[in-house]
Design a protein around this nucleic acid. Structure first.
Ligand SMILES: [Mg+2]
Length: 217
DNA sequence: GCGACAG
DNA sequence: ATCTTGTCGC
């Protein structure tokens, strides 16, 4: 179940723990995404070397899909699959790219911020479409405060909405994501998405061979 | 009340 | 996100 009133309070409380600060030197970048099929949620975490944009590691998590998707509450649906995959990584990335928004959210706490606060590590939101904020050229402006909450970039012609998750600045986040654009895709997030689709082919009888067992969370 | 609305 | 194949164009 998902109690929207309680979930909203969680976001408002945890949003106070978002940290805005320069990104540390980045050698590796993580990517997180989730796909669904037959009532299951397949989470994937990947690690990419930033200098050559080549994959270093991939980890999976197979979970029962229990939470529904409700706009502005995406984290409650995808954070478990994403974190379970992330925790399996042996190489922890210097910063994590999350498929979704960070501060570009009505309560300044999209899934990228949620994960950044929970892990206490740098995260950046990379979304394919807008959720909140007014586009003013390259800037995404919060209509209620006039603050810049995100930036719109183009990767191979496609729009991408970049916002700080936590432990980063919008400038550092934007510069890093632009470096990771290759063939019209932001590599870490795209690689995670592709593996998420491949993971759906794993037959339930083989889950244990992938270090997974379906438990009730 | 109406329209918007990450994945 | 998912349901779904071929087809038009570079
Ligand atoms: Mg996704």
């Amino acid at each position: 179940m998902l109690n929207l009133e309680a979930a909203k309070k969680v976001q408002e409380l945890l949003s106070k723990r978002v940290v805005l600060k320069p990104l540390p030197p980045v050698d590796t970048v993580g990517g997180l995404d989730v796909s669904y099929a037959s009532g299951l949620a397949y989470g994937v975490a990947v690690v990419v070397k930033v200098d050559d944009i080549q994959p270093v590691e991939v980890a999976y998590s197979i979970n029962k899909s229990v939470m529904p998707y409700v706009p502005t509450f995406l984290a409650f649906r995808e954070i478990t699959p994403m974190l379970r995959a992330y925790l399996k990584l042996r190489n922890k990335p210097d910063v994590i790219l999350v498929d979704g928004h960070g501060l570009a959210h009505p309560r300044r706490f999209g899934i990228a911020s949620h994960i950044g606060v929970v892990l206490g590590r740098p995260t950046i939101g990379v979304a394919k479409s807008r959720l909140y904020g007014e586009e003013q050229g390259e800037a995404l402006i919060d209509p209620s405060t006039g603050e810049e909450i995100g930036r719109v970039i183009r990767c191979g012609g496609k729009k991408r909405y970049i916002s700080v998750g936590s432990h980063a600045t919008l400038e550092d986040a934007t510069a890093l994501v632009e470096k990771l654009c290759k063939n019209g895709e932001i590599v870490p997030v795209d690689l995670a998405h592709k593996h998420t689709q491949l993971a759906k082919r794993i037959k339930p009888e083989k889950f244990d061979q992938w270090g997974e067992a379906l438990l009730d969370y």
